[in-house]
Computed example of a mutant assay.
Amino acid sequence: MPQQVRGVVAKSKGAPTEVVTITLPDPGPRDVVVAIAACGVCHTDLAYREGGINDEYPFLLGHEAAGTVEQIGDEVTHVAVGDYVVLNWRAVCGQCRACKRGRPWYCFDTHNASAPMTLEDGTELTPALGIGAFADKTLVHEGQCTKVDPEADPAVAGLLGCGVMAGLGAAMNTGHVERGDSVAVIGCGGVGDAAIAGARLAGASTIIAVDRDARKLAWATDLGATHTIDGSQVDDVVAAIQELTDGNGADVVIDAVGRPETYETAFYARDLAGTVVLVGVPTPEMRLELPLVDFFSRGGSLKSSWYGDCLPERDFPMLVDLYRQGRLPLEKFVSERISLDDIESAFHKMEAGEVLRSVVEL
C-alpha cells in the first residue's frame, strides 16, 4: 500500500523549500522503493528551486543519494530487497541508437519510476533528475539503482550520484587524462575538485587549479592540484597556465564553470592538439564568439561532458572500491552533515562558497 514519508519540496520559483509529507505509490513492475541514508546538496537542486531547469513545480528535491532497497516491483531483477545502492539518473534503456552503437553513456531514453510521488492532496511531484531523494524514502526505476560495497559511508558514496561523478568522469572518461599529462581545471567547486581528483588518479603529472577564491584553491590542493592560479591576482590566466607547462599550455583543460569567458580561457590555455572539456553547465542565453581560424589551426578536441560520460554500473562500484582502499579521497568532499530541515542553510553556504558538499543524513 502507499506510504507517507517526509520530503523536501520546492513549491514555486524562489520560494524557500518546505519539509512536507509526501506519498509514495506502490512500486510498478520495475520500480523500487529506496530508504535514503544520505543525500548531497547539489547546485542542481538550487537550480530546480529557482526555475533554472523547468517550471514543473512542485519539485521533490535531492538526487545525490545512497540507501537501501526496501521494496521492489514484480518484474525487478536488477536489485533485491536489502541491497545497498547509489542512485543515478542515467538508467540506460539498452535499445536506443546510442546504446545499440555501444555508447550507452549517451542513452537517449533513460528510465524513471512508472508512477509519480505526490503531495497529500494528490498533487504530482516532479522529482529532481527523476530521483527526489531529500526524503526518508523515494521511488525510482530499478535501473537507477547501482549496488556498491555496503561498508561505504552513504554520505560519501551518494556523492557519486551527480557532481563528484561529473568531475571525475570529465577527467577520466571524457578528457581521457593519461599518465604524465598536464591538466588545468578552471573552477574549483565540487565538480572542479572532483576533476582534479580524477586527474590525479589517472596519473597526471601537472595539475593546475584555477579559481578566484583562495579557500577553493586550498581545497583543490588538498585533492591533488600541484599548482594553483588565483584568477583575481593575475592579469592573464592563459599565460600563467602556459608558464607552468613549459610555455605550451595544458594537454587537457577542464572548464567546470561553464561561462563564455572561462571557456575562451580553456580554449587558449591548451596545448596545440590539446583537449578542452566543458563540464560546467551554461545558461541558454550565453553566447561564444571566437575566430573560426583558431578552431582550425589549433586542432585537438573540444568536448562536452554530461554526467562525466559515466556508466553507473561500471564506474560507481569501481570508484567506491578505490575510496575504500584509500586511493580516492571522496570523504574530503563532505564539508558538513545536516538534517532535512537544514536545506535552505546549505543552499546559502553553497552559494557563498563555504562548502564543497553539505550532506543530508537520514
Rank of each mutant, 00 (worst) to 15 (best):
M1T: 12
Q3V: 06
R6E: 05
R6P: 15
A10Y: 02
T17K: 03
G28F: 12
A37V: 04
T44G: 00
D45S: 05
G51Y: 12
L60F: 07
L61Q: 01
H63R: 02
A66W: 05
V69T: 09
E70V: 07
I72H: 13
G73N: 02
D74S: 05
E75T: 06
Y84E: 03
L87R: 00
R90A: 10
A91P: 03
A98V: 13
Y106T: 08
M117R: 14
M117Q: 11
L119E: 11
T126H: 02
H141E: 01
P154W: 10
G161K: 01
V164S: 05
V164Y: 07
T174V: 05
I186Y: 07
G189T: 02
G192Y: 08
A197W: 05
A202I: 12
R212V: 09
L217P: 09
L217C: 03
T221E: 15
T221F: 07
D222N: 15
G224M: 10
T226V: 00
I241A: 00
G247H: 11
G249A: 14
V252A: 06
V253K: 06
A256P: 09
E261C: 07
T265W: 08
R270M: 14
G274K: 02
G274C: 05
G280K: 06
V281P: 00
R287M: 14
L302T: 15
S305F: 14
Y307E: 02
D315P: 12
P317I: 06
M318Q: 07
P329V: 13
S339W: 13
L340R: 07
D342N: 10
H348N: 08
S358W: 08
S358R: 12
L362M: 13
